[in-house]
Amino acid sequence: MAQDLLKDVVYKRIKDMIINGSLPMGGKLSESALATRLAASKAPVRDALRRLQSEGLVQIKPKSGTFVFSLNDVEFKDLLEFRFYVEAKAMSLSLKKNPKQLVQEISAILDNMDYCISNGSTVEYIRLDNLFHEALFNWCQNPYLTQAYILISSRMATIRHYMGSNDEHMNRSYQQHVTIVKALRENDYDTALDALQGHILPEYGAYWGLL
Rank of each mutant, 00 (worst) to 15 (best):
Y149N: 12
V103N: 02
W208K: 13
R46P: 04
T158P: 01
V86E: 12
L184S: 13
L201P: 09
S64H: 04
T179Q: 10
Q176I: 08
L52G: 01
A135K: 10
H199M: 14
K61I: 13
E203D: 11
A2I: 12
N171A: 05
N112C: 02
L80D: 00
L6W: 00
L145Q: 06
S30D: 06
A43N: 09
A48Q: 01
M25G: 14
K61N: 09
N187H: 04
F84E: 09
K63I: 11
E105C: 07
S22M: 09
P62T: 08
I117F: 13
N112T: 13
Q147N: 14
A108C: 09
K77N: 15
W208P: 00
G198R: 13
M113F: 03
S54K: 14
G27D: 12
P44S: 08
D47V: 10
L184I: 08
Y115A: 07
A39M: 13
I109K: 01
L6A: 00
G164S: 07
N171C: 03
L193F: 15
K63G: 02
N112M: 08
Q53M: 11
R185I: 01
D73F: 07
V9A: 09
Q197D: 06
D8P: 01
M1K: 01
G198N: 13
H133C: 11
L193M: 12
V58F: 00
Q176G: 07
E186H: 05
N112F: 07
S32Q: 13
K100T: 15
V181E: 10
A206Q: 04
D111V: 02
A48H: 05
V103D: 04
E134G: 06
D78L: 10
F137I: 07
A39C: 09
R185E: 11
Y115V: 15
M170R: 03
M25A: 14
Y204D: 12
A90R: 01
L210A: 15
G209D: 10
V74R: 14
